[in-house]
């Protein structure tokens, strides 16, 4: 079982910078990152009219189903998925083994350009996620002694109040 992802301010800003650069470099409309469980990590571009939560969940479902297909025919994974539409296209790739990078683009860009830029951005994202995982491990190691969970004090009343409406 993969360890939890925890996102820290510093890495979050690095990720945002990388995907915003990718959006410009690839001449695309939207770039976003989702973890394999369907949680959106970051999004950039024309997302005002886009249901990014649903998009994230369906992307993860799509990748999970494709992973299943890959294993059935003896492949480790299909690392790139591409969906071509009349106007818009979706390019999906796996980064750092556990994160899904999604690029939505139209005729102002091309599959070749997107693939090229995604490759470069993936290398940078790999580094950032390696840092995050190292940080999580470090904190886990200290967990017994000093690590103070911000949730240690959640009480029953806190939880009840969530459902009070």
């Amino acid at each position: 079982m993969a360890p939890d992802i925890v996102m820290y301010e510093e890495e979050f800003n690095q990720i945002k910078a990388i995907i915003s650069k990718l959006r410009v470099d690839a001449n695309s409309k939207v770039v976003f990152l989702v973890d394999k469980n369907g949680q959106q990590i970051a999004a950039h571009g024309d997302i005002e009219n886009l249901d990014t939560t649903s998009l994230a969940s369906l992307t993860a479902g799509n990748v999970a189903a494709t992973d299943g297909l890959a294993r059935l025919i003896g492949e480790k994974e299909f690392s790139i998925l591409f969906h071509e539409g009349e106007k818009d296209n979706i390019h999906i790739s796996i980064v750092a083994q556990r994160v899904i990078l999604v690029v939505i683009f139209d005729e102002r860009s091309s599959l070749g350009l997107v693939r090229l830029r995604v490759k470069k951005a993936s290398e940078e994202l790999n580094r950032v996620f390696a840092n995050i995982m190292a940080k999580v491990e470090r904190e886990k190691a200290q967990a017994g002694a000093a690590f103070e969970s911000p949730f240690a004090e959640i009480t029953d009343e806190d939880i009840d109040s969530l459902f009070s409406e």
Partner: peptide
């Protein structure tokens, strides 16, 4: 696997 985002202060849980 809860996803905790300290940057945007969110907890995401999957049920």
């Amino acid at each position: 696997m809860t996803f905790i985002n300290y940057a945007s202060r969110e907890i995401n849980c999957k049920i």
